[in-house]
Amino acid sequence: MVKVTIDNISIEVEDGTMILEAARKIGGKIVPPAMCYYSKLKKTGGKCRTCLVKVAESSSRDPRPMPKLVASCSTPVQDGMVVQNITSKEVLDARKAIVEFLLINHPLDCPVCDQAGECDLQDLSFLHGVMATRYEEGRREYPAIDIGSYIKLHMNRCIHCYRCVFVADQLTDQRVHGMFYRSDSMEISTYIQNVVDNDFSGNVIDACPVGALTDRTFRFKSRVWFLKPIDAHRECNKCCGKVTAWMFGNEIYRITGRKDQWGEVEEFICNECRFERKEIKDWFIEGPRKIKRQSVISANKYEKLLKPNQK
């Protein structure tokens, strides 16, 4: 066990834990935002740079600060490490800059984007962004393409986090999509019009922090904040079968994995559960899912409800 201090709050974590994970154990406002890191997948992180923090003291043995800001998702803690996140102006400035960089080529078509309301980039830019843009040049544009019968790819919105690549690498037996080209013309695509088609491909939709990969069976049906997230499960021989069903009245509009407070799914689910079981009789309903983080979804739904014996 090593002791690490993040924004003046000390915590003991296991050796080899990343700074971001240690901060998540503390929780609250000091947790750096993460767009590319996904704790359920291996080797993710380090790419988006939104989780940059300042290491004021490297360890108790070597108390020198680290020369540059480091990506907290991929820097392991050391004993006696002192980390500054929201207490350092340098970090907040850098984060603001990163949000600006992520947004310059993002289309900002939130009003017509299916991800709006549960979009990590939306939350991030709301918290750290600037209100106006200094970017006057043309934005990157790509046609939206179908990759497989269930998934739509909007390359315009992609922030190149690589999460979907890692999902395909680590959950499925064959990856047919990946990153093509380089620099700002880099794009996610499938190899020669290949189709992403396997039992777990739908998880790329959950992993995508923006609206680049969306569910074709749900596109333009509704906005997420009109739907009620309900925990449900079924017997499934491929996956755990534990999902969140997004309902409107008695109708299931879509199925997703159960996302925790960091926007990461608790367990990955298979395509059959996700896309093919949309009848209410297929599922055992457990009860409403409380969504803290994406406030717009849970707004006015559950917070004000009282328990029956509370009156």
């Binding site: 380090g46 790419k47 988006c48 740079r49 939104t50 800059a97 990163i98 960089f101 992520l102 310059i104 080529n105 970017y135 040049e137 922030i159 190149h160 690589y162 990153m179 080209y181 380089r182 620099s183 700002d184 013309s185 880099m186």
Partner: peptide, 22 residues
């Protein structure tokens, strides 16, 4: 540099392109 950036981290990918355009 815009052409040669590998494109995996955001500041370099977006920033080099931005500077080149300006």
């Amino acid at each position: 540099y815009r052409h040669e950036s590998c494109g995996q981290c955001s500041p370099c990918r977006e920033g080099t392109g931005w500077m080149e355009k300006v």
